[in-house]
């Protein structure tokens, strides 16, 4: 474990806490893409298949359970909870996310570290996470003004993989034969997808104005 990866995991945890806070405090999920939440639930379920087979550390297992449980809880809230589901922007959240799932799975069948069930699903989860934010970014562009908590949620979600990139650089420099090309390349693509969001987030923070993404 290094400081970059710890910062990344804590930022990721913070993004989930901010989203849970927004849904719980406002009893609303307006501005939140359910499709992105569903993609993240699939990402965690596919990535943590080793939860019961490979024990890395208490921290590692604990965080896996937190990520799986929180993503499923959010999807449940947005689909079932009567108050929350009423505020879901169904007509704005129209990204065809099934294509993302199919494309990432096909890519994982071709590009993986080892052709085993667990490794293919791990690669699938890495590719899917890189594009999982797309429905959310499209929804933000369509829904005009973005409430603070939703904006902060997306910001922290984007920042966490940025910390992981620093972690991979650090590990590459300090550990012999450390190679994680699949995770590194996908992580760079994932963080790059947030580039314009980060720009408009910085502008709104600098001008102390409402976060607005151009349509």
């Amino acid at each position: 474990m290094n400081i970059f990866r710890l910062a990344g995991d804590m930022t990721h945890l913070l993004s989930i806490i901010v989203l849970l806070l927004k849904i719980y405090a406002t009893k609303s999920c307006s501005g939140v893409s359910r499709k992105t939440q569903e993609l993240y639930a699939i990402v965690f379920l596919a990535r943590y298949l080793d939860l019961f087979t490979d024990f890395i550390s208490v921290y590692n297992s604990f965080m896996k359970v937190v990520f799986i449980a929180s993503s499923l809880a959010i999807v449940w809230c947005m689909r079932v909870h009567p108050m929350v589901r009423r505020s879901y922007d169904k007509e704005l959240d129209t990204f065809r996310h099934y294509f993302l799932i199919a494309a990432c799975f096909l890519l994982a069948l071709v590009l993986h570290e080892k052709f085993t069930f667990q490794e293919v699903f791990w690669a699938f989860s890495i590719y899917l996470e890189a594009v999982a934010i797309l429905p959310q970014l499209v929804l933000l562009q369509r829904s005009g003004n973005v409430d603070n908590l939703t904006g902060q949620y997306v910001f922290f979600l984007g920042a966490y993989r940025g910390f992981y990139i620093l972690n991979w650089i650090y590990r590459y420099l300090t550990e012999p034969r450390f190679t994680r090309w699949i995770a590194c390349v996908s992580g760079v693509v994932q963080t790059a997808l947030y580039a314009d969001f980060f720009y408009y987030y910085f502008i709104s923070w600098k001008n102390n104005s409402k976060l607005k993404l151009p349509a």
């Binding site: 890395i56 590692n60 791990w122």
Partner: peptide
Amino acid sequence: EVVEQPKDEL
């Protein structure tokens, strides 16, 4: 030869 590395990252 890609050495099998444990998936120790989240």
